[in-house]
Design a protein around this nucleic acid. Structure first.
Lengths: 204, 204, 204, 204
DNA sequence: TATGAATGAGGGTTCATTCAT
DNA sequence: TATGAATGAACCCTCATTCAT
């Protein structure tokens, strides 16, 4: 019994190592630089070993994607629940989730890049769709609908508005992660200013 | 004298051919498909020949980058001039330039991606900075300052606000280029809605 | 005692499964597609398990070879017995066996190829000799001797003639299996014509 | 001028080396053992170099095929011309060509195996057909027609008979090359006996 | 100027096999 | 008995680049 458990744990440990190595390569060198050989080097196993745990490179990347998405959704939902617990109104809940979005990206740049920036040309579109990337989108839509009902933002096609909000958040995050622009104020100021400004534009 | 000129001209012709081939590969098949060999095949010279005109692959890509940037700036400036000629106020000029930004990205997705998204691991950061990418930023800052003076938008750190606007525009463009989200309205609506909303949030 | 028997039976069952999987891969997809992993996948055991029953891949293939040879001999002998039961003379019995040879090849192309064509680089020559491939040769020799005694074919070194007949049969079979030549008549006609012609040449 | 010629010669020399190494590997180890690496090792160049001269492995094998076929046809034709020059009748010319067929196989076992035995699964069917393998077949048909007209062999569908003769020759050759059967007489005796016997069967 | 020759490094992947458990 | 873990060797192929001419 114990044997089996230990084995399983060890097995999962290597899986984890593989994923982590892949993630780290991804972050530091970009998707093009993630290779089975480099992963193997990093974890100090032979390349063949990876094929024990994953069918091929796509499977590794897909796992990264699923994992990243789960973490992403979890981060959003947690902040949302906190906001609800704190009794915030719909508009403020939306701002909170928006902030959570950007914070997640900054705290997990590798995941954010994998999820929302990389081409991942080796990963089939199906995998991408299955990855649940759209769950976050639905969360946003629901929040917008609540804010409309509350009367704090303008009426409109919530799907359109959700895309619009997402655009703003994505741009904010990806510029913070990947570009260096002339800066006077802190990133925190940029984040809150941008979110506030956009929701001010949305408010009735 | 004349000899030299002819030589230069011929030399430039091949240079141009190289860049054109690289651009064509790049625009039609994506950055990953740009290889020295493929460029050489396309212009029907040997790969070695390219090294007579460019130090290495990075130099070729850098040229492409500069070119893309020039086109980008030109697109912004042209629309700005038109807006000025039409006698638009500062706020509307900003909106016009914003629209031009997004339109450029949609019309030149590969250029946009190479300019603002790709890691371009092969291109050193210095090249990126030299690429003049910040000229667009300055354009934006100037526009914002004018709008502040005009009184149509809130007072504030124009550098901060410029980053904020840029974020919104970049997110809008890159989502349009690289993601498929559930859609009800047209892209045009999304663009104008997002820009309008953001500037509404900025207005006094 | 019983335990041992059950064990043996079970043991043999897996052996059999392995061979069956190997044969199925072999017959359906060709020799190149037979790999330890694929066999293991098919029987839903781990690759390692196969090594409990067979020393290595060669041992598996050798078993297949023995099996193929047994089937081959059986096919020849059955037709020979039928011919004897029908009271055919030695010459006609030879023709019948010849026909059986070619029919076996056509009905079992992969077996034929593995027995008589493939290099089977992984199988040592010794194995091939042990495979009993020569039993068929002896059958042929015996038939020729009978026909000589009967007086229906020319006298001569029956070993030489046997090789000659075998050549003709092998050529016929392997061309039918592996080549597409311009065709007007059916394969059946080619087979009977070739066998008849050759034995006509051998007849007194 | 000379420079170019020397270059061309050297280029062809390496091409030749590649082909010869491939041929030798083919002969000694079978098609499955022909790898780009092994060829490279044998000629003491890097594997990459081969790709200077051939697009891929198939191209190497195809060249081998074309070359082998050319040699094969040449061998047949030469002996045929000699037979004509010697004033042999159609039947004897056929026997001569038959003998040339088998002799070619014995003298060039690697080519014979490539041309008529190997699966060459990596080579597209088109290449095989284009390889001109059928030219030899046409030669045979023409000889048979002449022999029919001469009255030395039976009338019949010359295409059928050609396949039949080819079968006999192919079986003879491939058994001589690839099998060791119990032997009393020399190979020469086997060859002439088999050919004579078959044509005796064909004669009126 | 232009190129043919050549290469080392690296890409993803499959294979038969061994070893400890 | 059965297996999970692991590997070294090999597979075909592409890449950017250098060098001598």
């Amino acid at each position: 019994m114990k044997h089996i458990k230990r084995r399983e744990r060890e097995s999962n440990e290597i899986r984890r190592k593989i994923i982590e190595a892949a993630r780290s390569l991804f972050l530091n060198q970009g998707y093009a630089e993630v290779s089975m050989r480099k992963i193997a080097d990093q974890i100090e196993y032979s390349p063949t070993t990876i094929y024990h745990y994953f069918a091929n490179k796509e499977a590794v990347v897909r796992e990264l994607l699923l994992e990243g998405n789960a973490l992403f959704l979890q981060a959003l939902q947690q902040r949302l629940e906190e906001a609800e617990a704190a009794g915030l109104n719909a508009m403020d809940r939306l701002k909170t989730v928006s902030d959570a979005y950007v914070r997640f990206g900054m705290a997990n740049p590798e995941y954010y890049n994998i999820l929302f920036i990389s081409d991942l040309e080796s990963v089939s579109p199906v995998s991408l769709i299955d990855s649940g990337r759209f769950k976050g989108f639905e969360l946003l839509e629901a929040g917008l609908q609540a804010a409309m009902e509350e009367g704090s933002i303008i009426q409109g096609d919530e799907r359109l508005i959700a895309r619009s909000v997402w655009s703003m958040l994505h741009g904010l995050t990806s510029l913070l992660l990947n570009f260096e622009l002339p800066v006077t104020r802190s990133n925190d100021e940029l984040i809150s200013f941008t979110i506030d400004t956009f929701f001010r534009g949305l408010s009735r």
